[in-house]
């Protein structure tokens, strides 16, 4: 869809939903490159009302034709984000969801744009880390405390539609099955390193002591950070497409995984993994059991492998021309190395 067409459609969509406006105009529209999964459009709206003009920033997230997390269903993510507007969590207000393909061809939702930028989980071109020591000191605890708050959100009666796991090992087993299924559905041959990890995960699924809301993709790259002023602050937690109910340590392991350290020794380039776990334990009041954490460490790499394999297959099938899917093919050895460290067949610090 050409940008002019997209702009006109968004203008009609938003115009019908903003109450009391004389005029609504989309003045700026840009396709975001940071997100690798859903299509993300950042746009600004000029609203004329009683002779005055107001500007608002929005972000539209649309299901892609093919992508890393297919099959897509934006509705659960929207319902959670919409409901979280009242919770003490830095998440964007998310006013609208639209399933009608007549509007933008595919389902999408719109959220209000928050200030800040999204540091990328990779070393900068000059080799520098995403954050300096002062920024790490300010942001690290804030990111952990926000995760503890996220896990404290009451989900019963609000988010049961996400699927409540039975007590015991069901939450862990469901996640293994979910990602194994995605690996199988990619139709690509199973790599021996991945097969070994899957077999280990199946045999070692831990008991979940307490079911919580799990973000599923809580990590550097999904944090909106405002850097103005003396101290940077966490302005938003983005990309809730993997939200589910499960073991909170799944988020802890994912956020601290070597996947997101951006060439630093720090969990999400912020805190040492030990400090991250200790801070989480103190902030949440939950013990961080090392064995359970180890299970979710391995699951994190398996999950990332499944995501990459899905993208590779979408590219191979010519369902997407997005070359970012193709780069995963040569990045898989990194995941092999991380699996080796997590499973102990390569020596190294996880």
């Amino acid at each position: 869809m050409p940008d002019d067409d997209l702009r006109a459609r968004l203008e009609r969509f938003v115009g019908r939903r903003i109450q009391g406006a004389d005029r609504v105009r989309v003045t700026h529209l840009e396709r975001s490159t940071e997100g690798f999964s859903q299509e993300t459009f950042v746009f600004e709206v000029e609203i004329g009302r009683d002779g005055a003009t107001e500007r608002r920033g929005y972000v539209a997230k649309r299901e892609p034709v093919a992508g890393l997390l297919e099959p897509y269903d934006l509705e659960p993510e929207f319902r959670v984000l919409h409901a979280l507007s009242d919770d003490p969590l830095p998440s964007p207000r998310t006013p609208w969801f639209e399933r009608d393909p007549a509007v933008l061809d595919r389902p999408f939702y719109v959220m209000e744009r928050l200030p800040g930028d999204v540091p990328i989980p990779a070393a900068r071109t000059d080799g520098a880390a995403p954050f300096d020591d002062g920024e790490r000191e300010a942001l690290g605890p804030e990111v952990v405390d926000a995760l503890a708050r996220l896990h404290a959100i009451e989900w019963r009666g609000r988010f049961d539609f996400l699927g409540v796991p039975r007590p015991g090992r069901a939450a862990a087993e469901r996640e293994v099955a979910r990602w194994e299924d995605r690996i199988r559905r990619s139709g690509l041959p199973l790599d021996p390193a991945l097969a070994e990890a899957l077999l280990w995960l199946r045999r070692n699924a831990p008991v979940t002591e307490e079911t919580t809301l799990v973000h599923g993709d809580y990590r550097l790259g999904n944090f909106l950070v405002v850097r103005g002023g003396r101290r940077p602050r966490l302005a938003g937690i983005l990309d809730w497409e993997l939200v589910h109910l499960g073991d909170p340590l799944e988020d802890v392991a994912w956020c601290a995984s070597p996947l997101w350290r951006a060439a630093t020794p720090y969990a999400s380039a912020l805190l040492t993994p030990e400090d991250f776990a200790a801070r989480y334990a103190a902030s949440s009041g939950r013990a961080v059991d090392p064995e359970r954490l180890r299970f979710y460490d391995v699951l994190a790499v398996v999950k990332m492998s499944a995501i990459m394999l899905t993208g590779i297959q979408a590219f191979r099938d010519q369902r997407t021309a997005d070359l970012r899917m193709a780069i995963f093919d040569h990045q898989l050895p990194f995941l092999g190395a991380l699996l080796g460290v997590a499973r102990g067949w390569i020596a190294g610090a996880a």
Partner: peptide, 21 residues
């Protein structure tokens, strides 16, 4: 598996992920 991962990594070029993102 360990030896194969090392062989695979040896032919990889530095990532342009930041620029790509």
């Amino acid at each position: 598996l360990a030896a194969q991962v090392m062989r695979d990594l040896m032919v990889l070029k530095p990532s342009l992920l930041t620029e790509i993102s």
